[in-house]
């Protein structure tokens, strides 16, 4: 009987441990929702920040976050996926690839402020990109690159070797094997990794503050589309900006209670965006894996 008691005891300990984690998150989230939900209306999404708390909104913040994410994805996805493919399918195993592997894993654990400092020196000053959307996007791209690389490699590694051999046995080149098999079969895992990386990036505050995002912005970046030729414009890349977490940070540092409610409302939106991205990742994985079995 004693052995069975141990089982019950551990099950209880496990449930309590789990509850601590879940309830803490739930309390924070509900608390934020109670404070913030009354502030969430159309006006909140379409207004710039203001000195009057009830007039203030998150327009510049969510537009900034969206644009920075676009730049982040534009750089992190091709670089990360290509690196992952190279390391798994092309590189011969040697001490150099081992070293690179260890470094990538370690890079994922480097505090994000360190990336901010690096970006401040390199992108902002050395490359002269300034305190712009481009600088921020590049910084976050660096930050999530290890996540994308590791996710790509793990997705590729889960493809059985007999599939590769089947392809090579028919006379396929490495690139044909990657193009027709490796990429399609690993796309679910890779996409999941990308989205989880992006969900992390969208909440990052420290590196963005370090490179000098503004905390009070009452204008939008130049529009990417124009009426006159050449119709597209990339001026927005060099525009000053703010992002959601910085807008929150700014509001929480104000003394008036009304701004605290704004911060809670913005926090609610941010958490919702992150959860939506994670939900999308789960759905995509389910959709894409449905047709793949070994």
């Amino acid at each position: 009987m004693h052995r069975k008691h141990q089982d019950v005891v551990f099950a209880l300990v496990g449930i309590v441990a789990l509850m601590v984690a879940v309830l803490t998150f739930l309390t924070l989230f509900v608390n934020m929702a109670v404070d913030g939900l009354p502030r969430l209306d159309w006006h909140f999404f379409t207004s710039f920040p203001s000195r009057r708390a009830t007039q203030a909104g998150i327009l510049s913040a969510w537009v900034g976050s969206t644009l920075v994410m676009l730049v982040t994805a534009f750089f992190a996805v091709p670089l990360g996926v290509a690196s992952g493919i190279y390391l798994e399918e092309y590189a011969r195993k040697s001490w150099v690839t081992d070293l690179i592997e260890i470094n990538i894993t370690n890079l994922a654990g480097v505090p994000s402020i360190v990336y901010g400092l690096l970006a401040l020196g390199l992108f902002v000053y050395q490359f002269g990109l300034g305190q712009s959307i481009l600088s921020a996007g590049l910084t976050l791209a660096l930050l999530i690159l290890p996540v994308v690389i590791v996710a790509t490699r793990e997705a590729i590694r889960s493809i059985p070797q007999v599939i590769r051999e089947g392809s090579y046995a028919l006379g396929a080149t490495r690139w044909q094997t990657v193009r027709y098999h490796i990429l399609p079969y690993s796309s679910a895992g890779i996409l999941t990794g990308i989205i989880i990386g992006m969900a992390r990036a969208i909440g990052e505050t420290a590196p963005i503050i370090t490179i000098g995002a503004l905390t009070f912005i009452a204008f939008l970046p130049p529009a990417p589309l124009k009426a006159e030729p050449p119709f597209v414009s990339f001026d927005w890349l060099m525009s000053p900006f703010t992002v959601m977490p910085i807008q929150m940070f700014n509001w929480t540092s104000r003394p008036e209670a009304a701004f605290q409610d704004n911060a809670a409302a913005a926090g609610f939106v941010l958490v919702f965006m992150t959860l939506a991205m994670n939900g999308l990742a789960i759905w995509l994985r389910y959709r894409l894996r449905r047709n793949i079995k070994w």
């Binding site: 007999v162 599939i163 051999e165 089947g166 098999h181 079969y185 047709n291 079995k293 070994w294």
Partner: peptide, 10 residues
């Protein structure tokens, strides 16, 4: 070549 275990592509 034909392998030990059937390995059709997905």
């Amino acid at each position: 070549m034909v392998f030990q275990k059937p390995n059709p592509f997905p």
